[in-house]
């Protein structure tokens, strides 16, 4: 098993490296130039060139890539092209905001989805089950932005219950932030739960017909105990995998929700930087997203092993 883990870890490192290369060279290919954009159409070519030089852009791409990688290894994300400031501290507050939002959404969505999926499986083919399936279908088909605007129109505009924009600042207490977070979290929960609900239901149903479920029933165990003790542990591996993948999707999918609610997170930072052609910041954000995705995928693989005694203990 250790061998497998090491292999997986090595593959993860390779993937991150690959992602960094793609991010960097894709950034190179982008048309336009931050300097001429920043200095405006009145700028002299000399001034543009000086600005470019001051950011080190006169060096060949490969040299800059290797320097970037070297900096990353020391925890240095580089400097913003537009304002020359360190990217690290700039991202730090944004990242913590994003993680707060994603974490809250996950905290609500995972128990909600797994619970609802379990109930749907237990009451298979009843009106409740059908309702859950239908609603999850609808939410899968609804784009995030559509649901977000719907929520704003209803809760903020119609009912005046909640604010429509969620600009949090670092001097706000958590209690102050909560009302601002409700709508974005709600949007994320609704749009990410559907897959988890459907997969929880499907994996539970696939083990419900197993012989050991029959054994448990013939032991005289009550239904809830059969589900909790005998079915969920066996259905957990695929559920955990889809949950973790959905969390990865959640973090990456934040970009749209953050933009709609003007929430100062990573996603919004990335969108802003793209419009300013601040390539280094875009690259740093992209890399953080990529690493998150890869790490969460590795966790999914790890969970699959931990949850399966056949993989944990050799026969």
């Amino acid at each position: 098993m250790t061998k497998y883990l090491l292999k997986r870890l090595f593959a993860g490192v390779l993937l991150v490296l690959g992602a960094s290369a793609i991010l960097f060279f894709a950034g190179e290919l982008l048309p336009g130039d931050f300097a001429s954009r920043m200095l405006g159409s009145q700028a002299t070519p000399e001034a543009v060139e000086a600005l470019r030089q001051s950011r080190g852009l006169d060096q060949p791409a490969l040299t800059r890539y290797l320097m970037w990688l070297g900096g990353l290894l020391q925890g240095d994300l580089g400097v913003s092209l537009t304002n020359g400031r360190e990217i690290g501290p700039l991202i730090a507050t944004r990242l913590s905001n994003t993680l707060t939002l994603a974490g809250l959404a996950a905290l609500v969505a995972v128990p909600f989805a797994v619970g609802l999926g379990t109930l749907a499986a237990m009451y298979r083919n009843t009106w409740f089950d059908r309702l859950v399936l239908m609603l999850s279908m609808v939410t899968v088909a609804t784009p995030e932005f559509f649901f977000a605007y719907l929520a704003i129109a209803f809760f903020a505009v119609q009912l005046h219950l909640l604010p429509s924009i969620s600009i949090v600042t670092s001097d706000m207490s958590f209690a102050d932030k909560v009302p601002l977070l409700i709508l974005p979290v709600l949007t994320l929960v609704v749009t990410t739960s559907a897959h988890m609900i459907r997969l929880t239901r499907a994996s539970l149903i696939s083990v419900m017909d197993s012989e050991y479920a029959g054994t448990a029933m013939l032991k005289g165990l009550p239904q809830w105990k059969i589900v909790l003790r005998h079915l969920l542990p066996n259905a957990m591996s695929p559920i955990a995998a889809v949950v973790v993948l959905n969390l990865a999707d959640l973090i990456v999918g934040l970009i749209i929700v953050e933009a709609i609610f003007a929430y100062p997170g990573m996603g919004q930072l990335m969108v802003d930087s793209v419009s300013k052609q601040d390539v280094t910041v875009v690259q740093a954000c992209g890399l953080i997203f990529a690493v998150t995705y890869i790490v969460l995928n590795m966790i999914a693989d790890l969970l699959a092993i931990l949850l399966n005694p056949r993989l944990r203990y050799k026969s």
Partner: peptide, 14 residues
């Protein structure tokens, strides 16, 4: 009850 195939009648997770 004792099932025909104990291999599938036991819960693999416990």
């Amino acid at each position: 009850y004792v099932a025909q195939s104990a291999a599938s009648a036991f819960n693999p997770a416990h």
